[in-house]
Computed example of a mutant assay.
Amino acid sequence: MERRGEFDNTILLLAVVLTCLGVVMVYSSSSIMADRRYADGFYFLKRQGVYAILGFALMAAAMHVNYQVLRRLAVPFLFGCVLLLGAVFLPGLGLSAGGASRWIRLAGISIQPSELAKLGLILYMAHSLAKKKGKIKSLTWGFLPYMLVLALLLFFLLLQPDLGAAITLGCVAMVMLFVAGTRLVYFLSAMILTTPFLYFLVMNVDYRRRRIFAFLNPWDDPTNTGFQIIQSWIAFGTGGPFGNGLGEGRQKLFYLPEAHTDFIFSVIGEELGFAGVFVITAMFLLLVLRGIRAAQAAPDDFGKYLAFGISLLIGLEAFVNFAVVMGMLPTKGLALPFLSYGGTSLVTTLLAVGVLLSVSRQAKGDGI
C-alpha cells in the first residue's frame, strides 16, 4: 500500500522564504538599472514575480504527485533536454548574448536548457542507478554508460559555451555515482584523463585565462578583469555586521556588474550585513541537510538517489556562488538558487524542490 505521510515542512518553508526574499532582493538590486535601461524600475521585479508564481505552482503540483511516476519520464525528459541544448544553435530559435548561445525563445519566453538538463540528468541517473543496483561496480555497466551520457550533455554545454554548467553537471554525476558505490579507481582514472582537457579549456581561452589571473591577484588589473570581485569585496566590507539597510546599497549603482543575477549575494551582504549573509547561508545548509535526510528515509533506491541528487545540486550551486562572490573561486556566472534573477533557474529549482517534497512525503519510519 502506498504510504502518504506529511511533507517536510522545513524544506517547504525554506524554499518559500528564500524565493520571496529573492524577489525582494532582485527589485532592490535592479530597480535603478531597470529604470535606466527599460524606463521601468519594476521591470525585473514583475518578471521575477511571475517566475516565482509559476515556480510555486509547479512545486505544488510536483509535491502532490507520487515521485515514482517520474521514473517513466526519466529517459524522455533527458532526451528532450538534449534536443533543447542543441536547439540553442538553430537560427531564429536560439538566442545569443555576450558571445554565448545558451537560450532559446519559445512563444516569447526565453528558456535556458542547461538548467533543465541538470534536473534531467539527476532524474535519469536516479532511475538508472536504482535499476542497476549490483552492477554499479562494473566498469562496463556501472560507469561507462553514465560517462557517455554525461559526455553528450557536456559537448553541447561546451559549444555554447557554458563551462560553469558543464562543471556543475560533472560534479553532480560523479558524486551520485560515488554514493551509489562506483569504484574509486574509476573516478581517479576519469580525473587523470580529464584534467589536461580542462586545463586546455581554461588556459587556451583568453577570457577564462584572464579570470584565473584575476582570481589569483585582482589588484593587478583593478579596472578590468579584477573589477567585479573587488566591487564585491567592497559590498561585503561596507555592509558590516547588520548592513546599510534594505535598498540602501551603493555597489549596485552601476559599480557591481550583474548585481541582480550572479552577484546578488554581494548586494545582500551590503544591505543586510553579516547577519543576513549568515542567516541565508544557514538556510541553504538546513535545506540541504533536510533533503539528505529525506533521501535517507526514502522507501526505495530511486527516491534516495533522486532526493540526494536534488539536494546536492542546490547545495553545490549555492556553495559555488558564495565562493565566487567572496573571491574564493574564479569568477564564473552561476546563479544563486532561489535568489538570483532568472526564470528558468527559479522555476526549475522550485520544481525540483516539489519533487524533493514528494520524496519526503513517502519517508519511512516516524517521518522527518
Rank of each mutant, 00 (worst) to 15 (best):
M328K: 12
L350K: 02
G342V: 10
L329S: 05
G309H: 00
M326T: 15
V320A: 13
L287P: 10
G342H: 04
I268Q: 01
L312K: 01
L313G: 02
A298F: 00
A282V: 14
L286W: 03
F319H: 01
P330R: 07
I310V: 14
F322A: 09
E270R: 05
F284H: 13
A294D: 02
T261Y: 02
A335P: 15
L272K: 00
T261Q: 04
V320M: 13
Q296F: 12
R361H: 08
F284C: 10
G291C: 06
L336C: 11
L339Y: 00
L346C: 12
V347H: 05
P299S: 09
K304D: 00
L289M: 15
A275L: 15
E270K: 02
L316T: 12
R361E: 15
V359K: 02
P299I: 09
F319S: 15
L289T: 08
D301A: 15
R290P: 13
G354L: 06
V324H: 00
A307R: 07
E258K: 04
P257K: 03
L287D: 10
G273V: 11
V324S: 05
A259Q: 07
V267A: 04
G276C: 10
K332H: 12
V347I: 15
S311H: 05
F338R: 02
L350S: 03
V267Y: 00
G273L: 03
L351I: 06
L306C: 10
Q296V: 15
G276T: 11
V347C: 10
L289I: 14
L350P: 03
G342L: 10
F302I: 14
P257M: 06
L256Q: 07
L357M: 10
A294P: 09
G315S: 05
G354T: 01
V359G: 08
L334N: 11
F338D: 04
G342Q: 08
L313N: 07
F274R: 06
G343E: 09
G354I: 04
L306W: 05
D300R: 08
G333K: 13
L306Q: 09
G276L: 02
M283S: 14
G354E: 03
